[in-house]
Amino acid sequence: MTGNVPFSDMLVYLDGSEGSMSAAMYAVLLAKGTGSRLHALYCINTKALGDLVKARIFINQEKAEYMDDMGKDARRHIRHIEKLAHSKGVEVTGVIVDGSPSAEVLRYIKDNHVDLLVLGSVNMIRSRREELTSESDRMLRTSPCPVLVARDDESIWQMFEELD
């Protein structure tokens, strides 16, 4: 807890989508406004890659290529949030992990005493099929701490631009 704010360690989950970048901006704004610590995590989904090889959809060469591409993507997005945060005078701990995103986010929350999870767009409920549950949906449902969903909205970009 920071002052009168009920959280002190905030984690924003990045997955390369535009929605997660809006969430990152919102998290920077929140950290700036509350003085809480900001963590950003990108998980390279090696669980899905492994499953795709097992199902024979991917060959090992593709798995290696995608590992490489996703690693670059992860570093690019972590660098981006670091840049965003520094532009507003906020410190951020950027972390890249691999595995199953929802499991890794939960592990990080527990290991680092995170008390607010910030997510980007959560899919609209358009199907009842459990197989189509996204990683963000899983995090939303299973997070041990409160979750804030930042809608991918232009107002976030505007607020971010306006903040000194």
Binding site: S17, A48, F58, D73, R129, S134
Partner: peptide, 24 residues
């Protein structure tokens, strides 16, 4: 597209999961 490899892997993974359902 080459722009979002994570999204591509997630798409393929969703299809694979969906197709694991015999009923579907």
């Amino acid at each position: 597209s080459q722009e979002n490899p994570t999204e591509h892997v997630q798409l393929l993974s969703s299809i694979a999961r969906l197709c694991s359902s015999d009923v579907f």
